[in-house]
Simulated scan of single mutants.
Amino acid sequence: MKVLIADDELISRMITKAAVEQSGHECIVAVDGDSAWELFQVHSPEAVVTDLMMPGMNGLDLCRAIRSAEDESYTYVILVTSHGSREDVLAGMDAGADDYVTKPLDPFNLHIRLLAAQRITSLHADLARYRSALTEQARTDPLTKLHNRLKLTEDLAGLHTSARPGDYCLAMVDVDNFKSYNDLYGHQAGDAALATIASTLAAEVRASDAVYRFGGEEFLLVLRDQTSSGAEVVLERVRSAVHALQIEHSGDPDGVLTISAGVAAYTEGHRAGTEQLLKEADLALYAAKASGRNRVAVSTQGSSPN
């Protein structure tokens, strides 16, 4: 465990450092509260042992700063007081300290508190990992392993949070004649086909782009820093890659599973909202379907020749 010590008294600092290292922990030493805060931001220690009274930022100020800076991680704070008065202890707990020891420091007492610190911070780290996993699970489609509509909504909102959002394109993709595929081959085969097509879509776009399962046999691609003509080239490549999978479909005129796609662009001169862009991509997809399927159509709104 990484432990930060903050104490302006040399002898007290040396005793605390020796006790921490004898307990088997890595030690970082600060000579006052201000330098402790700087070291905390650089090293992110699991535990802090801080004197109450220090020049500049005192122990209470340091506790408050640490608590206000925490997000997923947790730092165990042990306050060192000269007398262990009730007022000092209560003030420390109110400021965010977890425990306290008194001067002169007893290494055994500190060792016991560092054991508790290790257990508590380990539990907090486990909880943070579980929360992260649950957050990711809530935003992932279980069949295709692509992100789902919840993540899409968040990401589309994020594209518009900056003062000047960059150009991007949305592409609505639909598997052609998929209902008849399920009827002919069964839902298990249909699920396997969707998973294969999903991985193909993800493999054919850049790392900066994103692919989502929109629902059923529909997918949504977000292509960043892309014009409509550039997006059309990308989707033609994607369409060709899916066709090359040669997933047999006797109920389709091509004899294999294919996709159709509709593209809408968020570009200079066409700063439409996301709902409007989704509608435009959907209408373009409908046009691709109406034109015979297994093709890409681009919305005329915001399209550009370059």
Rank of each mutant, 00 (worst) to 15 (best):
N109K: 13
K2H: 12
S299C: 12
G190N: 11
Y212N: 04
V211K: 01
S122E: 13
L277T: 03
R86P: 05
V256Y: 14
N58F: 09
L105H: 04
L285Q: 02
K289V: 07
L257C: 14
V263T: 00
K151F: 13
T144L: 06
H43K: 10
K151L: 15
D51H: 05
I197E: 04
A30W: 02
H249E: 07
M14V: 15
A287G: 00
S162E: 04
P55W: 11
L39E: 12
G251S: 14
G59P: 07
D167M: 15
T196Y: 00
F219P: 09
V89K: 01
T140H: 08
L143H: 03
I112K: 11
L184V: 07
G56C: 08
D282A: 05
A157V: 05
P253V: 15
G84D: 01
A264T: 06
L257S: 03
G216H: 12
L245Y: 05
A203F: 07
Q137C: 00
T16F: 03
V298T: 15
D141H: 07
A47T: 13
L134N: 03
S162G: 12
D183G: 11
Y74K: 10
L4V: 02
L235A: 10
G269H: 12
A195G: 12
L60H: 07
E72L: 08
S208I: 15
A116D: 00
A265P: 04
L39D: 08
H243K: 14
L283K: 06
N109M: 12
I78Y: 02
P305V: 03
A297D: 04
A198D: 09
G59W: 04
S304K: 01
A128E: 08
T196H: 11
L184D: 13
F178L: 08
L156C: 10
T196E: 14
A157Y: 03
M172S: 05
A261C: 13
D32F: 10
L152Y: 04
L277V: 04
G96Y: 08
A203P: 02
P253G: 04
G33Q: 11
G292L: 12
S162P: 00
L277K: 03
S180P: 00
Y100P: 05
A157R: 13
V42L: 13
D176H: 10
D98A: 12
V80K: 06
A138C: 05
V49Q: 10
E236C: 13
E217N: 06
D225L: 13
T227S: 15
T200N: 06
D167A: 14
D126A: 12
A193T: 06
S228T: 09
V222K: 09
S68N: 11
L39C: 11
R224Y: 05
L257K: 03
T161K: 15
C63F: 05
L221D: 02
M54A: 06
G262C: 08
L235N: 04
T300C: 05
G56V: 08
R13L: 12
G186V: 09
A128F: 10
D209Y: 07
L220V: 08
L62G: 06
D8C: 09
